[in-house]
């Protein structure tokens, strides 16, 4: 009996695809939208991914970290990532200039099953950088607008400057049957919108659970309160969907780091319904 290692090992899953930074746009004072293009043309055309999936970005010499892919695959404009400067890898990524060489590993994880949600009213609730993985969800739904019911988007941040994807607000607002509600924890002189915490906005707007799916992402504390408010409104656990963040080193279910109880965020997630999460042994 010969062991059969070594035969299926041509592609090393730790080696990123080389990519070039094409664009860098300030979304907020600490979040940049990075646009990358894979160097290999064949790969570029075949790099398929779905809303909710993530990839590792490399800042060579510092390391790599996982980020949600915020572009949508049908727009062949490169891969977009919203990167918040919060540690050493993100700082190094911010410092890259267009033309710089970087690396992409992925796509990893599951995705939002948007096809299953066709015909439903969609409530999309994001806080801060938590809005990033929801952007491809919104853009995909709006791309197939007639397939979905009413769309309510709640986007919250600490201050008006921290609201991500401002360049797209008019596009979202302008879509038929679509409402965009912006809210901040703290306004400024120019801000005329809401000053309220995201969970309180959910409570106030009180979306109906009837034929609806709520997708939420944000800081863990926000997610917990949004969940509570939605449940008070009558949403069942399987109508509430989120995407979880975790420290990860491989994306392959090997580094044994991103588990919550017996579930790996990188393999079993990052997208979970609260029905699934409430069955977790550990808290996220």
């Amino acid at each position: 009996m010969f062991r059969s290692w070594g035969q299926k090992l041509e592609h090393n899953p730790f080696i990123p695809y080389l990519a070039t930074l094409k664009g860098k746009l300030d979304l907020t004072p600490d979040i940049k939208l990075l646009t990358l293009e894979l160097d290999d043309p064949g790969l570029r055309d075949n790099f398929d991914y779905r809303p909710g999936q993530f990839a590792f970005l490399s800042a060579f010499g510092v390391g790599e970290a996982p980020f949600g892919i915020v572009s949508v695959p049908y727009r062949k404009q490169g891969l977009e990532f919203a990167v918040r400067r919060i540690g050493t890898v993100t700082r190094a990524l911010h410092e890259l200039e267009p033309g710089a060489s970087t690396g992409v590993r992925g796509p990893f994880g599951n995705y939002f099953p948007l096809e299953e949600y066709r015909g439903k009213n969609m409530i999309i609730i994001g806080g801060g950088i938590g809005m990033a993985p929801l952007r491809p969800v919104i853009n995909t739904i709006l791309h197939h607008r007639p397939d979905y019911g009413e769309v309510l988007i709640i986007n919250g941040a600490r201050t008006p400057q921290d609201l991500v994807f401002a360049p797209e607000f008019n596009l979202w607002r302008g879509a038929p049957g679509t409402t965009l509600e912006l809210t901040v924890d703290r306004g400024d002189e120019e801000w005329e919108g809401r000053v309220a915490l995201v969970p309180d906005v959910v409570k106030e707007l009180a979306p109906s659970p009837q034929n609806a799916i709520a997708i939420t992402c944000g800081p863990p504390i926000m997610i917990r309160f949004v969940l509570q408010r939605l449940k008070e409104l009558g949403f069942a656990d399987n109508q509430i969907v989120t995407t979880l963040e975790s420290k990860m080193k491989c994306g392959l279910g090997k580094c044994a780091r991103c588990n919550i109880g017996d579930k790996y965020i990188c393999k079993d997630g990052p997208v979970f319904t609260f029905e699934q999460i409430s069955g977790f042994m550990e808290q996220f």
Partner: peptide, 18 residues
């Protein structure tokens, strides 16, 4: 089991094979 589960960890696999 974890290292050689697809997609297999290349270096680990090479060490094992050799």
């Amino acid at each position: 089991k974890p290292f050689l589960a697809e997609p297999a960890d290349t270096l680990y696999g090479q060490h094992r094979a050799r």
